[in-house]
Amino acid sequence: MHAFKTIGLTKVYGEGEAAVHALRGVDLEIPEGELVVLLGASGSGKSTLLNILGGLDHPSDGQVFFRDQEITTFDDKALTAYRRDHVGFVFQLYNLMPSLTAHENVDLVTEISRDPMLAEEALEMVGLGDRMDHFPAQLSGGEQQRVAIARAIAKRPTVLFCDEPTGALDSKTGIVVLQALQDINRTLNTTIIVITHAMATAALADRVIMFGDGRIKDVRLNEKKLAADQIEW
């Protein structure tokens, strides 16, 4: 069964001369349980696609199906429920609440989820069991990003969207973060879609989608996936 299917997805920002075509008709199918990597130059439309799939933004035209529901027809309330029940996000800049500890940042999500794991459990999974009561300002960049991942997976999402999760990190910390993602994909069977600039990350994926100029340039299936610690950065 597919997790996502899109038909003729288009997104235009602005109007007239100033219009920017972020997506120019994207047709795509992503099976459930895969780890998918979206590659492409900046401005190629990756983030826009991710935001629309995650229910954070509306397309200008086209359809998006999550399993067999067309989320492009959802109203605000239904989209909120969709995000709440199925979707997890990890952002490049972590976007942690600075006024909450790691544990509390995770709780922010578990408190509104139907079947969450314990915050401790989620933080253990990303290797932060001993830093739970630290505030974001007391954590390194990699640790902050892992808190963000823990926060995203704690609700056991069906899909996990990661926008440049290692973009702000050095290679060593980046690998730790990717390892965490891979573990989650394996153990929870969560569909994970990762946006990245780093070509090396593609080696971890089941499927690699190349993006350029608002269109899909190429889709490649990975025959032999590498483990995170095997990739060359």
Partner: peptide
């Protein structure tokens, strides 16, 4: 925006 992304309602 973030709270909305997590599924908090308006």
């Amino acid at each position: 925006g973030l709270l909305k992304a997590f599924g908090y309602s308006n």
